[in-house]
Computed example of a mutant assay.
Amino acid sequence: MRALHVITGLGAGGAEQQLRLLLRHLPGTHDVVTLTNPGQVADGLRQDGVRVADLRMAGNRDLGALPRLTRLVRTGRYDIVHTHLYRACLYGRIAARLAGVPGIVATEHSLGDTQIEGRPLTQGVRALYLAGERLGRATIAVSPAVAGRLHRWGVAPHRVHVVPNGVDVDRFAFDAGARATTRARYGLPPDAFVIGGVGRLVPGKRFGVLIEALAQLPDDVRLLLVGTGPEETALEAAARAAGVRDRVVFTGERPHTARTAAAGPDLPALFSAMDLLASPSTDEAFGLAVVEAQASGLPVVHVHCPALDDLPGARRPGDTVRVPCEAASFARETETARTRPPAPRTPARAALHYSIARSAARHLGVYEAALGAAPTPGVNTR
């Protein structure tokens, strides 16, 4: 099987990380084209031996990118074109249809109740999304919550396949040496209690709530914000206004493997440096950072996480707490966590449930269904 993955960008983000991890576990030949921003994940993919092309798209309305993408797809003689993220799903599906690709699959990573990838769900955005969806053969939803939203929009249930994100649990195992090294690199005292926030610094992630919570906590508590985005300057200003700027660390865009660690440690090392993962976002499609934190054995305080809600047996892990999106609640739960006796940092049930091997097998089943082939025995794509 030859597959081309089309993605909007390859900077540091959950969908981009997930694509790289998935390609390490899928059989066949897989190439990647990014419409724009060939960032850190592009470098990592190339290190893994994946061929990556940059379409150099100038913006959402750069229609000249469409014939370039169509030629690239046609030349590659791909069996599957798999698109990721809003802009790539639209342009990639059209190009794949024009090139005559038999199997067109998209993954919906970021569809919330009120936004998709940070943009409001206006009537125009929704109409364009649905028009593009009809050009494909199947849409992968990263959670039942996303599948339900697609169904309510009018996407036929037989076209939607629930395939949760996957986590490489061993990679996120707690590492005491990495904890010490990472804390030293970022100026975090060895005895500080460190709250972590992981994700794009955009309004929907609500990281300002954590800054407000930090101002209510003792001086030995620190906040480590992992990621970058347009809200970084505003968050720095909020930290200064709250009098806690010296207690907040912004890592910027983080690398994904030790081999690209010139600018800082990788994501598992950052989780090892934390004592608690806080997720104030009110509108998540899956909650990948929460599951990765659970793989590192971290307790979690969160507002919304479909990945936890969808665990079989409706039993939430005992080391996760759901709270309202308000600073006082995050401050209260942080204070509870920091006064609790230390516990071993072992992977939690949530992380073990969402293995990348299982996710890859289910992706393969979707590809086979999109090509009209008999599914691999034992692979459930629902």
Rank of each mutant, 00 (worst) to 15 (best):
V167A: 09
A173C: 13
D175H: 09
G177Y: 04
G177A: 15
T182Y: 01
R183F: 08
A184H: 06
G187S: 09
A192S: 14
F193L: 08
I195A: 11
G197L: 09
V198Y: 01
G199H: 02
L201Q: 06
V202P: 01
P203C: 11
G208Y: 00
I211N: 04
I211R: 05
E212H: 08
A215E: 06
A215Q: 04
L217V: 04
L217T: 01
D219Q: 09
V221K: 02
V221D: 04
V221Q: 02
R222Q: 13
G227P: 07
P230W: 02
E231L: 08
T233L: 15
A234E: 09
E236F: 00
A238D: 08
R240M: 13
A241M: 07
A242P: 04
G243H: 00
G243L: 04
G243I: 03
G243C: 03
V244P: 02
R247F: 02
V248S: 01
V249A: 14
F250Y: 10
G252M: 09
G252I: 08
E253M: 14
E253R: 13
R254W: 08
T257I: 12
T257G: 15
A258F: 03
A258V: 14
R259I: 13
T260C: 14
A261E: 06
G264E: 07
A269F: 02
A269R: 07
S272N: 05
M274L: 14
M274G: 07
M274A: 14
L277E: 12
